[in-house]
């Protein structure tokens, strides 16, 4: 735990997202129980916890991706800048443009690399001409540390890239829509250490513009990139606090056993 970034300061204490008493049910299964979390603006929040504890489920609540699962039911309140995202007036499509997502498994569109990144800006009308779009595509690919590998074959299919490249493409695609919150579900699980380091660098950079939520199974990664950490266990939020405190001085014995590798 030497490389833990203890000095990383929380830039802001403004909460971007506030979740209160969130319950998620898959049919009769109670997957998320009574979760209260504050996601700070312009900071990275990490969700850690053993497999199946509900990290992805909770993450998917934050941009209402759970709406696509027929049996999934969400209760409680999730406020984005004070507005309830589960309010009747909210159009989830519009919400998802603000709260972008990178999925656990890389899922590029079966389109060219260029079109993958350009898709979001195109459907949201973010650019006025081709040159602007080209610029966005290049910027996003650079940020996702993919530009050098693909700049000569932007018209090649995105599905033809390696798993790690695909994931970085998905990251580029997600940031191309210029979301305010970026949800990342284990973005590095398919990446080699070099690409992982690049993505972590990107996350660190992104937190100056967005608020980032990242699910990870790597304690080191959580410690390296995040300012806040939430530890989930069996659908409960066991502990939530500053990353430094969670890793050096956990209050709950379950957190301690998890980060020292005794449960999970």
């Amino acid at each position: 735990m030497k490389d833990m970034r203890m000095e990383s300061r929380v830039d802001s204490t403004v909460n971007k997202i506030e979740a209160r008493k969130v319950q998620v049910y898959y049919g009769a299964t109670h997957a998320i129980k009574d979760v209260d979390v504050d996601i700070a603006d312009r900071a990275v929040t990490a969700f850690i916890g053993p497999s199946g504890c509900g990290k992805s489920t909770f993450l998917r609540c934050l941009n209402r991706m759970n709406d696509t699962i027929a049996i999934c039911r969400v209760e409680g309140q999730i406020l984005l800048e004070g507005e309830d995202i589960y309010d009747r007036r909210v159009d989830p499509v519009q919400l998802r443009a603000k709260v972008g997502m990178v999925f656990q498994k890389p899922n590029p569109f079966p389109k060219s690399i260029y079109d993958n990144v350009a898709y979001g800006p195109r459907i949201h009308g973010l650019t006025r001409n081709k040159a602007e779009l080209d610029q966005i595509v290049e910027d996003c690919l650079r940020k996702a540390a993919l530009w050098n590998e693909v700049k000569d074959r932007l018209s090649a299919p995105g599905t033809g890239l390696s798993g790690g490249q695909q994931q970085r493409l998905c990251i580029a695609r997600a940031i191309a829509t210029q979301p305010e919150v970026l949800l990342m579900d284990e973005p590095c699980s398919a990446l080699d250490p070099i690409a992982t380091a690049q993505v972590e660098e990107l996350i660190d950079e992104l937190r100056h513009q967005f608020s980032v939520v990242i699910v990870t199974h790597s304690m080191q990664q959580a410690a390296r990139v995040s300012q806040h950490t939430a530890f989930f266990h069996l659908g409960h939020l066991v502990e939530f606090g500053e990353t430094g405190q969670i890793f050096t001085n956990p209050k709950d014995p379950r957190t301690e056993s998890y980060i020292t590798g005794r449960i999970g």
Partner: peptide
């Protein structure tokens, strides 16, 4: 068509119809 493609499109803020027709 793999559901992950639909997730991907919805995740960048495409509407249901855009998801279906574009992807």
């Amino acid at each position: 068509v793999p559901p992950s493609i639909r997730d991907a499109a919805l995740g960048v803020g495409a509407s249901k119809m855009q998801t279906v027709f574009h992807n």
